[in-house]
Write a protein that binds this DNA or RNA. Structure first.
Lengths: 231, 231
DNA sequence: CGCTGATATATCGATCTGATATATCATGTT
DNA sequence: AACATGATATATCAGATCGATATATCAGCG
């Protein structure tokens, strides 16, 4: 889960831990506020497995060139952004505090693709997981993307059936519980409608011979990934 | 969280672990499928702290009366349900497998009331937590109940602001992410409308001097007011 | 008769959360 | 100038939960 989110962010450009947390919170909003107790261990894990490389960007060591990197442009932008736009101050000293900037590796990209195209978890945080995958859906091949949407729809259909069974069986519910069950059912229905519209527009998009410009490394089609047929 | 759910269920009548899991899954639907790795440790915890008492209901010990309880009607029904309706078989041997039936204590009731009336957690599972509290809201005093609803509404208002900030800031989002953000925003708005209607009907209910019959142990604010609505 | 699936309890490792600690710097307040 | 506050930044800890797995009993099915 978190690995996917981190690699997804880092696949666009490099970040340090704190930035990752902020982006996950402010941009996606899927992880309300990733705990540092999740984030930093996850980064260590990923570094250990070779999916990312962390470069110490300490202020006390201006000796060794401050990480040239991919042309340093992405890093520069990130650093600037983290410095809260403005206050040009740079020169030599005082880069706040030593930050460890993480870069994705080729291995990491492969892991990212596997995670993204791989099996979605069922249960507790399927919603969060789906949201995350959808946010990175542009990295999926059209086929895999459609599969993602349809598997999610199936999940929701099952959930709706459960919701309705609850609503039907619960005659001894008090008014609060009944209202809760009804509201939940409606929310699920709303989710399904949304999925339907996503699926429809996705099919339209794939039917039309769109020779779109930016094709950002799609994944998922080639392999023998069990598509919707697994239920 | 789980403690509250367990105590809430047990405050109505006794259950064994497996039943608790089923009820939480089938009736409330808030915990998709409580893990046994959560449930059994939680029961042990609660037993250790004196909030519940577990009685070994082994098939080899038909001696001690199998817990009469609240007139045994509720328990009977539960037992029957768990036995999958029919096959009267009982006599001496083979009651499936030894079950440990948990009963709430007075301490447990006090803990339940504290948990229910206590601070709601912010962050990750505020939604689940609220749903759970709402399902047991009938045990709260009208004042506390209204407070619960209003605090939840405040949470959602803040969440909506965050959602809208995301939607406004995200011009570089792709269509999938944008759709996700929009859908999330709509869902939050829908939640707020729901809360509004709950709050309104709660206020109406409290304005009317309903001297209803069954007052099931309300908690929260010192005032012991009446609570109607068995609808 | 064995197979599958439901009932029932228990434990394990992994992960995630929330809290806390430590440190640097920018800003605002008095 | 002194001081507090709050953002930036990394790290670690205890506790809760999850998903998987193990074990065992029994019902229904073919």
């Amino acid at each position: 889960m978190l690995d996917l989110a981190i690699l997804g962010l880092l696949s666009e450009h490099e970040f340090h831990g704190y930035e990752i947390r902020k982006r996950l919170r402010d941009e996606l909003g899927l992880f309300a506020n990733i705990s540092f107790g999740s984030l930093y261990p996850a980064l260590s894990r990923l570094e250990l497995s070779g999916a990312v490389i962390g470069t110490e960007s300490s202020p006390a060591a201006p000796a060794a060139a401050p990480i040239p990197l991919t042309g340093s442009l992405g890093g520069e932008r990130a650093a600037l952004r983290s410095r809260r736009a403005g206050t040009v101050r740079s020169t030599t000293r005082g880069t706040k505090r030593s930050r460890k900037v993480y870069r994705i590796t080729d291995t990491g990209r492969r892991v990212f693709e596997e995670l993204l195209a791989g099996e979605e978890p069922v249960g507790t945080d399927e919603a969060r997981s789906f949201g995350l995958r959808l946010a990175f859906a542009r990295h999926l091949a059209p086929q895999a993307r459609l599969g993602l949407l349809e598997r999610r729809r199936d999940q929701l259909i099952r959930r709706l059936a459960a919701d309705q069974a609850r609503a039907a069986a619960g005659n001894d519910f008090d008014s609060y519980t009944r209202s809760l069950v009804e509201h939940t059912t409606e929310a699920t229905q709303h989710d399904i409608s949304w999925l339907d519209s996503l699926i429809e527009s996705e099919k339209l998009k794939q039917a039309a011979p769109r020779t779109e410009s930016r094709t950002p490394r799609t994944v998922g089609t080639g392999s023998a990934a069990a598509k919707g047929t697994e239920l």
